[in-house]
Simulated assay, not measured.
Amino acid sequence: MPNETQAADAKKQRSNRMVAGMCIAFVGGMVGMAYAAVPLYAMFCQITGYGGTTQRVEQYSDKILDRTITVRFDANTSGGLPWDFKPVARDVQIKIGETTQIQYVAKNIFDVPTQGRATFNVTPDLAGAYFNKVECFCFTDTTLKPGETLDMPVVFFVDPEIVNVPELKDIKTITLSYTFFPIEGEKPVAAAPKADGETKTINFDGKAGG
């Protein structure tokens, strides 16, 4: 029969294994929550408009107020994407609830095809929940050939309910901003002559290679 010391050691080992198992489960749960946090946060933003996230709708507004608001448009590129990207008009003045279409335009100024994907936000942040887009180009993979220009329409309206929000009832201007990023993957290269007649490669980010 095991003596008291052996029994105590066995009990201690079982306790250690239990603690270790609990720690592993806790760490695994935290990792799972971290991965889930990103899509859950994105879903939260889409539903509430938190962080300036606009709303995507399938139908136009059925109510138009006799009150105007100015919507400004901003355009940016990031990550070395070689595009000339801008709105056709810098701003429009519309009635709250009025469905409006505006245009952005993008041109690939590189000598090989390039791909981009746009994200967006609205300022002030609280207005995102009341800025409804019927049609847009956000989160769509877009490929442009060398020198190609593409018109990108956005159809939207400002929800009339915005005038019932205390923090937004006197709002005069909303800014819609898009940023295009290069799509992750192998970066295209273009050949350019060196001074000695050889060639060098120019990477997608504009840096020269050997």
Rank of each mutant, 00 (worst) to 15 (best):
F137Q: 08
F137L: 05
F137I: 05
C138P: 00
C138R: 03
C138Q: 12
C138K: 09
C138T: 14
C138S: 14
T140K: 15
T140Q: 15
D141F: 10
D141W: 08
D141Q: 15
D141M: 14
T142F: 07
T142D: 07
T142Q: 13
T143C: 10
L144V: 02
L144G: 06
K145F: 09
K145C: 02
K145S: 14
P146I: 08
P146N: 11
P146Y: 10
G147P: 10
G147H: 12
E148G: 13
E148V: 09
E148L: 11
T149M: 14
T149G: 08
T149W: 09
L150E: 11
L150Q: 14
D151H: 14
D151F: 13
M152P: 08
M152K: 09
M152G: 06
M152Y: 08
M152W: 07
P153W: 12
P153H: 11
P153E: 10
P153D: 12
P153C: 11
P153G: 11
V154R: 01
V155M: 12
V155F: 06
V155Y: 06
F156D: 02
F156T: 02
F156H: 07
F156R: 01
F157H: 12
F157P: 00
F157A: 11
F157M: 10
F157I: 06
V158R: 04
V158P: 04
V158L: 09
D159T: 01
D159F: 04
D159N: 15
D159M: 05
P160Q: 04
P160C: 07
P160V: 08
P160L: 05
E161N: 15
E161P: 00
I162A: 07
I162N: 03
I162L: 14
V163Y: 12
V163E: 10
V163W: 11
V163P: 05
N164H: 13
N164K: 14
N164I: 00
N164S: 09
N164P: 01
N164T: 07
N164L: 05
V165N: 09
V165T: 09
V165P: 02
V165F: 00
V165A: 05
V165K: 10
P166S: 13
P166G: 01
P166E: 13
E167T: 12
E167R: 10
E167M: 08
E167K: 13
E167A: 13
L168W: 08
L168V: 01
L168M: 08
L168C: 04
K169W: 02
K169Y: 05
K169D: 06
K169P: 01
K169M: 09
K169S: 13
K169L: 04
K169F: 01
D170T: 11
D170L: 02
D170F: 01
I171L: 15
I171P: 03
I171G: 04
K172M: 04
K172F: 04
K172N: 08
T173G: 00
T173R: 13
I174E: 03
I174K: 05
I174T: 01
I174D: 02
I174Q: 04
T175P: 03
L176T: 00
L176I: 04
L176C: 08
L176R: 00
S177K: 15
S177F: 04
Y178G: 00
Y178N: 06
T179D: 01
T179C: 08
T179R: 07
F180C: 09
F180W: 12
F180Y: 15
F180T: 00
F181G: 00
F181I: 00
F181E: 10
F181N: 09
P182E: 03
P182K: 02
P182W: 01
P182G: 01
I183V: 14
